[in-house]
């Protein structure tokens, strides 16, 4: 189910001052895609996510989820609609006084799911998230990753068309994060559910999303497919997030001169797997040493980054740089502070 924001704003009144949680935003999230939103806390991503299922209502503008205009729904219709929009949370938000099965049963009951079929449905969902043996366990006896699996099972209970993920892996360790992300990916593939993910971790976007919006100060400042955002970040905030993935720093003791330069190269798509370095060694009378380098696979497409220290005559270095700039698929990158 697609999600369409049209000129949506959200302003709060806080201590007599107006706060623009979301500046005028239009956005289309396509049916079946995994859409990521990244930003620092307070950037407005959480507000945007909560507008989709009307946990918050917009100050102006319209939000369509499928064919329904969310602000126009009656209370009752909104409740019915929400059953088709699952949501998972950073703090899991399970009902602590209910067992795993009872937590899932709660949302089935809320949706008037046939009583005699609820137990079978619970088994099915627990099977899907790999927690069949935890049916009668209370949440406090589960690990973070297991709690999130219950959260996912609960969110999927009523066959939603959309799944909203609110920093769902931010409270989990890296290994557990990976398994939860691959579970979400599988759900998207197998069930065709549109997933909207908000996070402050670029790693999550890289692993999971197909398209991404970067938010800052209540606005989507950059929007595109994930590879494009990673390889050609335009906005300063985006560059900051992408940089986290590169994790490169210019060694402090190296002094750059005309005869001793640091060149960082970016290899896009297929060129990342080609043998560029060989050519450089062969064709230029320069001493070239590798300071840092890695290849990231983003949605399976490689993006290579290589940091070189080049020493030799200034003219020869210039020749090298000019040749790099002419080579398709290879770019000189800056390392942003």
């Amino acid at each position: 189910m697609s999600i369409v924001f049209k000129d949506v704003t959200k302003t709060y009144l806080h201590k007599g001052k107006e706060i623009n949680a979301l500046r005028p935003t239009s956005l289309t999230i396509h049916e079946g895609e995994i859409f990521g939103l990244i930003g620092f806390s307070g950037a407005g991503k959480s507000t945007l996510l909560r507008l989709i299922n009307m946990l918050e209502s917009p100050t102006s503008g319209t939000i369509h989820v499928g064919d329904d205009e969310m602000t126009a729904l009656s209370n009752k219709d909104l409740r019915v609609k929400r059953r088709k929009i699952g949501m998972i949370f950073q703090q899991f938000n399970l009902i602590e006084s209910k067992t795993v099965a009872e937590n899932i049963n709660f949302v089935l009951k809320a949706a008037d799911y046939p009583k005699d079929k609820r137990d079978g449905r619970i088994d099915e969902l627990l099977e899907l998230v790999g927690l069949s043996d935890k049916k009668t366990v209370y949440p406090k006896n589960l690990s973070g990753g297991q709690k999130q699996r219950v959260g996912i099972a609960r969110a999927l209970a009523n066959d939603p068309d959309v799944l909203l993920s609110d920093e769902a892996t931010s409270a989990l360790d890296p290994d557990t994060t990976k398994t939860i992300l691959s579970l979400l990916k599988r759900i998207n593939k197998e069930l065709g559910i549109t997933i909207v993910v908000i996070t402050h971790e670029m790693e999550v976007i890289k692993e999971l999303a197909e398209r991404v919006g970067v938010m800052s100060d209540g606005e989507i400042i950059e929007l595109g497919d994930v590879y494009q955002i990673f390889s050609e970040p335009k906005h300063e905030v985006t560059r900051g997030f992408v940089q986290d993935i590169y994790d490169f720093e210019v060694p402090a003791h190296i002094e750059e001169t005309a005869e001793n330069q640091i060149i960082t190269l970016k290899f896009l798509r297929e060129s990342a797997e080609e043998n560029h370095l060989n050519k450089l060694y062969r064709n230029y009378d320069l001493s070239i040493s590798i300071l840092n380098g890695r290849v990231e696979y983003i949605n399976g497409i490689p993006l290579g980054i290589l940091m070189l220290q080049v020493t030799g005559e200034a003219d020869e270095i210039r020749r090298l740089i000019e040749s790099i700039d002419r080579t398709p698929g290879v770019e000189r990158a800056e390392i942003y502070d």
């Binding site: 299922n53 059953r83 699952g86 949501m87 949370f89 009902i95 006084s97 949302v107 009951k109």
Partner: peptide, 24 residues
């Protein structure tokens, strides 16, 4: 967050009172 999750799950206020607030 538990109340938020219940609302997001489509539960009615009455059900949240009887099945979430009071047990919790």
């Amino acid at each position: 967050g538990v109340i938020e999750a219940s609302i997001a799950g489509g539960a009615s206020v009455f059900m949240i009172v009887t099945d979430v607030l009071i047990p919790e």
